[in-house]
């Protein structure tokens, strides 16, 4: 069990706010932190890793105390056995892929782990390249590989896949799932992507303005029980047109746009860029296998 109880005064875009988070994370699973930008998700990861110091609180991994403000314990990041994958990859530009991984090797470890990770992550052909010559997806694969070389107890991922296209993202999600299962690491992942959450997460923690507003399985957190919807999608409003009393709302869902007709008075508050839920209650949808 990973026990996290932290408070920290943070500077946000709308002025200072207090991050106050309490969560217990089961070891050996994937926990997702989600919530709007500036909610404090990255700060939680930084405090778990030791890169940021909480004002007060406790961080315990199993029986190990990593931070305890009462007992004045604050282990430096070097001594926390964590893997951290940064949003911007943070590969060392002066080293090749293999050297990046080798840099992560701890004194007590066998060097053979590097070959193993290179093999599993499909980096054999890229191992002598410098990061500069890699695509975004390849860089992220290297960053993930480097983070797992030292076999961390806890793997922290800060929106690792957000900059990638859909196909690459799905491939990396599969890698991540695979790694988590084979090495039994506890993964804490920050993401906005709801499909990613449903695909990967055992447990979801939703943070807003520094406070945990919801936690549970993806189904518990994201499904609205009051809605007896046959299907539902989330998307972004890209276009609003008004015609008489009607409003034609164009919503981007994944890579498809869907036009929904609504009552003008009901949807007056919608703006372009709003995140919306599109659900159907009345019709039975058609389902057809794609060849």
């Amino acid at each position: 069990m990973i026990r996290i109880e932290i408070t920290k005064l943070l500077k946000g875009a709308q002025g200072p706010f207090t991050l106050s988070a309490q969560m217990d994370v089961n070891e050996g699973g994937i926990t997702v932190l989600t919530g709007p930008s500036g909610a404090g998700k990255t700060s939680v990861l930084r405090m778990i890793s030791g890169l940021m110091r909480p004002d007060a609180g406790i961080i315990m991994v199993g029986d190990d105390t990593w931070f305890h403000s009462g007992q004045k314990i604050n282990r430096p990041p070097q001594k926390r056995a964590i893997g951290y994958v940064f949003q911007e990859y943070a590969l060392f530009p002066n080293m090749t892929v293999r050297q990046n991984l080798k840099f992560a090797l701890q004194k007590s470890q066998q060097p053979s782990i590097i070959d193993e990770v290179i093999e599993i992550m499909g980096l054999v052909r890229l191992q002598d390249e410098k990061p500069m010559n890699l695509s975004g997806g390849q860089k992220q694969r290297v960053a993930l590989s480097r983070a797992i070389v030292q076999m961390p107890k806890v793997l922290l991922l800060d929106e690792p896949l957000s900059a990638l296209d859909r196909a690459m993202r799905i491939q990396l999600q599969d890698y991540l799932h695979e790694i988590q299962r084979s090495y039994q690491m506890s993964v804490i992942l920050v993401t906005h992507d709801i499909s990613e959450i449903f695909k990967l997460a055992n447990h979801v923690v939703s943070i807003q303005n520094g406070v945990i507003v919801n936690a549970g399985t993806p189904q518990e957190v994201f499904s609205d029980h009051n809605l007896a919807g046959k299907f539902q999608f989330t998307g972004e409003v890209v276009k609003l047109e008004t015609q008489d009393f009607l409003m034609i709302i164009t919503v981007l869902i994944g890579s498809q746009t869907i036009r929904v007709i609504g009552d003008q008075s009901e949807h007056r508050e919608l703006k372009i860029g709003d995140h919306v839920l599109v659900a159907s209650k009345a019709f039975n949808p058609i389902i057809r296998k794609l060849s």
Partner: peptide, 24 residues
């Protein structure tokens, strides 16, 4: 993040300076 990722990989400030920061 270069410095920070070196720290989380267990490297000291001095090692980080010599092997990550200065070469870049």
């Amino acid at each position: 993040s270069l410095r920070e990722s070196s720290y989380v990989l267990g490297k000291s400030r001095f090692q980080t300076l010599m092997k990550v920061l200065l070469p870049n």
